[in-house]
Computed example of a mutant assay.
Amino acid sequence: MGLNLYGLASPLCAQVAPPQAAILQTSTGSTINADGSITPLYTATPVQIMVQPPGPQDLQLQEGLGQQADLRVVYVNAAVRALSRSLQTGGDILQFSGSEWLVTRSVEDWGGDASGESEWVKVVVTRQLPASV
Rank of each mutant, 00 (worst) to 15 (best):
D113T: 08
D58A: 07
S10T: 04
L102P: 05
S30N: 05
V16M: 06
S118E: 05
L71I: 08
E108L: 15
G90I: 01
T89K: 04
D58G: 04
M50I: 13
G112L: 11
S118N: 04
S30C: 07
T89I: 15
Q95R: 13
S97A: 15
G36Q: 06
L71G: 02
D35C: 02
K122W: 00
D35I: 02
T31C: 02
Q57P: 00
L5R: 14
V73Y: 07
N33T: 02
C13P: 01
A82L: 03
D92N: 06
S37G: 05
A9C: 07
N77E: 15
E108Q: 15
T43E: 13
R105E: 10
Y75L: 15
T104K: 05
G7D: 06
W110R: 11
R81M: 12
V51D: 14
E63F: 13
Q62N: 11
L12K: 06
S115A: 11
T39S: 13
M50A: 04
S84M: 04
V80M: 05
Q88I: 00
L41W: 00
N33M: 09
Y6P: 01
T26V: 08
A44S: 14
V76W: 00
Q25T: 04
T31W: 00
L8Y: 13
S99C: 15
G55M: 07
P56H: 04
L83D: 11
L5Y: 14
I93R: 01
G111S: 03
V51R: 08
G90K: 01
V73R: 15
L102E: 15
G90L: 03
R72L: 07
P40I: 01
I49Y: 03
L83M: 11
S97K: 10
M50F: 08
A9R: 08
G112N: 09
W110Q: 12
Q57N: 09
G55E: 12
V47Q: 04
A17M: 03
D109H: 15
S37H: 06
Q57Y: 09
